[in-house]
Structure formats: structure tokens, C-alpha cells
């Protein structure tokens, strides 16, 4: 990661905003400034910042220690998976699995995260769903809960 990549990403985002926003038009307008001006103003300033960063470069971030990138990718995968099965599998099963996998990523082995996952997910389900009235999905365990 360095300033040049950041700058180019900002330019791309600004270009996308201008492309998507240049023909925004209100069918009836009572005001001089329609829905288009503000997003385009933002995109213009963003493009200027991006240009400056891309041209001047520098700001190279130090590389991650070996293995870190794999762990981060794995963690991202677990969070996406958690999001995908959250409703279908239900809170308790999804959270127990997520705890096991994330716990392993953070160096917890098998036993600790497994026990922590099952106990923690049941505990949090009771706390939020039953005590605090924050409704959580029951999913596969629906018949028993």
C-alpha cells in the first residue's frame, strides 16, 4: 500500500461518481441547486486529492510480517461466511462456528475456542434475545428455541 495506489483508487472513485452522477436531474425543481451539484463537488475535490497523491507518491506502508496476509484474508472470509449463514443457520450455530474459526486465527487452538464458541453463543443469545429484547435469528435451531 502506498500513496500512489491510494491516489489512483481515489481517482477511480471520483470518476465513477462523475460518470454515475453527471446526468442526475430532478423532474421538478424548486431550487437552484439540484441533486447533482453536491456529489459532483465532492467528486471534484476527491479527484484533486487523488491526483496529488498519485503524482507525489511515497508513503510506502511497511510490509506485513510473513503469514499475516493469509490470516487477514482468512479472517475476512470468516466474516463474510458469518454474514452469509447468520440468518439461515441461526445466531447460535453461526456464532459458535465463527468463534471457533476466528479463535484459531488468533492462536487459540481447538479446545478453547470450541468451548468458548458454544458457551459464548448461547450466553449472548440469552442475553440479547431473551433479556434485552434484541431479536436474533433462530435458524436451524428454530424448533427448539
Amino acid at each position: 500500500m502506498n500513496n500512489r495506489i491510494l491516489g489512483i483508487a481515489a481517482l477511480a472513485l471520483a470518476a465513477m461518481m462523475i460518470w454515475q452522477g453527471h446526468d442526475l436531474q430532478a423532474p421538478f425543481s424548486y431550487e437552484p441547486l439540484g441533486p447533482r451539484a453536491f456529489p459532483l463537488l465532492i467528486a471534484a475535490v476527491m479527484a484533486l486529492c487523488g491526483l496529488r497523491l498519485a503524482i507525489r507518491g511515497g508513503g510506502q506502508a511497511p510490509a506485513n510480517p510473513p503469514g499475516a496476509n493469509t490470516r487477514i484474508a482468512a479472517m475476512f472470509g470468516v466474516i463474510v461466511g458469518y454474514a452469509l449463514v447468520f440468518q439461515w443457520a441461526g445466531f447460535i450455530i453461526a456464532t459458535a462456528l465463527m468463534t471457533l474459526l476466528v479463535g484459531r486465527l488468533f492462536g487459540g487452538g481447538w479446545v478453547g475456542p470450541a468451548i468458548g464458541g458454544v458457551a459464548g453463543s448461547v450466553l449472548l443469545f440469552v442475553l440479547f434475545d431473551r433479556v434485552l429484547d434484541v431479536v436474533l435469528p433462530v435458524g436451524l435451531l428454530g424448533a427448539w428455541l
Binding site: T99, G107, G108, P113, L124
Partner: peptide
Amino acid sequence: VPPWLLVPGIVCVSIIGVYS
């Protein structure tokens, strides 16, 4: 408290919050 217990807890509470 070891991070392998703390981090999943934080992720879980965060997701509960967004889901709610």
C-alpha cells in the same frame, strides 16, 4: 482475557448491532 475469546466476542456483538 486471551484475544481468541475477545475478538470473536467483538465481531459477534458488532454483527448483532448491525443486524438489529
